[in-house]
Amino acid sequence: MFEFQFESLTAFLEMAPHGSYVWPVYILGLGVLGGLTWVNVAQHRRGLRSVKRHIERGEIHES
Protein backbone atom coordinates (compact mmCIF):
# COMPACT_ATOMS: atom_id res chain seq x y z
CA MET A 1 0.00 0.00 0.00
CA PHE A 2 2.92 2.36 0.68
CA GLU A 3 4.83 1.82 -2.51
CA PHE A 4 5.82 4.94 -4.42
CA GLN A 5 4.01 4.68 -7.75
CA PHE A 6 6.55 6.52 -9.91
CA GLU A 7 9.99 5.51 -11.14
CA SER A 8 11.59 8.91 -10.48
CA LEU A 9 10.84 12.39 -9.20
CA THR A 10 10.62 13.58 -12.81
CA ALA A 11 8.01 10.91 -13.57
CA PHE A 12 6.13 12.00 -10.44
CA LEU A 13 6.13 15.63 -11.53
CA GLU A 14 5.16 14.74 -15.11
CA MET A 15 2.41 12.36 -13.95
CA ALA A 16 2.29 11.33 -17.58
CA PRO A 17 0.27 12.47 -19.33
CA HIS A 18 -1.79 14.41 -16.77
CA GLY A 19 0.68 16.46 -14.73
CA SER A 20 -0.48 19.67 -16.41
CA TYR A 21 -4.00 19.02 -15.06
CA VAL A 22 -3.20 17.62 -11.62
CA TRP A 23 -0.54 20.04 -10.34
CA PRO A 24 -2.32 23.34 -11.11
CA VAL A 25 -5.36 22.05 -9.17
CA TYR A 26 -3.26 21.35 -6.07
CA ILE A 27 -1.32 24.62 -6.36
CA LEU A 28 -4.64 26.48 -6.62
CA GLY A 29 -6.10 24.52 -3.69
CA LEU A 30 -3.16 25.19 -1.41
CA GLY A 31 -3.15 28.84 -2.50
CA VAL A 32 -6.84 29.16 -1.63
CA LEU A 33 -6.37 27.59 1.82
CA GLY A 34 -3.36 29.81 2.50
CA GLY A 35 -5.24 32.85 1.22
CA LEU A 36 -8.27 32.21 3.43
CA THR A 37 -6.01 31.79 6.48
CA TRP A 38 -4.17 35.03 5.67
CA VAL A 39 -7.46 36.95 5.14
CA ASN A 40 -8.71 35.73 8.56
CA VAL A 41 -5.55 36.76 10.37
CA ALA A 42 -5.45 40.14 8.59
CA GLN A 43 -9.15 40.82 9.30
CA HIS A 44 -8.67 39.93 12.98
CA ARG A 45 -5.62 42.20 13.33
CA ARG A 46 -7.38 45.02 11.47
CA GLY A 47 -10.38 44.70 13.82
CA LEU A 48 -8.21 44.87 16.93
CA ARG A 49 -6.25 47.85 15.56
CA SER A 50 -9.48 49.63 14.71
CA VAL A 51 -10.84 49.13 18.26
CA LYS A 52 -7.53 50.38 19.68
CA ARG A 53 -7.69 53.52 17.50
CA HIS A 54 -11.28 54.21 18.57
CA ILE A 55 -10.34 53.80 22.25
CA GLU A 56 -7.41 56.20 21.85
CA ARG A 57 -9.70 58.76 20.23
CA GLY A 58 -12.17 58.29 23.08
CA GLU A 59 -14.92 57.07 20.77
CA ILE A 60 -15.37 53.83 22.76
CA HIS A 61 -15.92 53.95 26.50
CA GLU A 62 -16.00 51.07 28.92
CA SER A 63 -19.49 49.63 29.10
Binding site: L36, T37, N40, V41, Q43, H44, G47, L48, S50, V51, K52, H54, I55, I60, E62, S63
Partner: peptide, 28 residues
Protein backbone atom coordinates in the same frame (compact mmCIF):
# COMPACT_ATOMS: atom_id res chain seq x y z
CA UNK B 1 -10.51 26.23 11.58
CA UNK B 2 -11.28 28.84 8.93
CA UNK B 3 -14.87 29.43 10.06
CA UNK B 4 -13.82 29.86 13.71
CA UNK B 5 -11.07 32.29 12.67
CA UNK B 6 -13.44 34.33 10.56
CA UNK B 7 -16.08 34.33 13.31
CA UNK B 8 -13.55 35.62 15.85
CA UNK B 9 -12.54 38.43 13.49
CA UNK B 10 -16.18 39.43 12.87
CA UNK B 11 -16.93 39.21 16.62
CA UNK B 12 -14.21 41.78 17.41
CA UNK B 13 -15.71 44.18 14.85
CA UNK B 14 -19.31 43.72 15.95
CA UNK B 15 -18.60 43.75 19.68
CA UNK B 16 -16.11 46.63 19.55
CA UNK B 17 -18.10 48.60 22.14
CA UNK B 18 -18.07 45.76 24.68
CA UNK B 19 -15.78 45.88 27.70
CA UNK B 20 -14.35 42.43 26.93
CA UNK B 21 -13.09 43.60 23.52
CA UNK B 22 -11.48 46.63 25.19
CA UNK B 23 -9.77 44.30 27.68
CA UNK B 24 -8.66 42.13 24.79
CA UNK B 25 -7.13 45.11 22.96
CA UNK B 26 -5.33 46.18 26.16
CA UNK B 27 -3.83 42.70 26.45
CA UNK B 28 -2.60 42.53 22.82
Amino acid sequence: YLVLGSMRAILVERERRSSWVKELVDRV
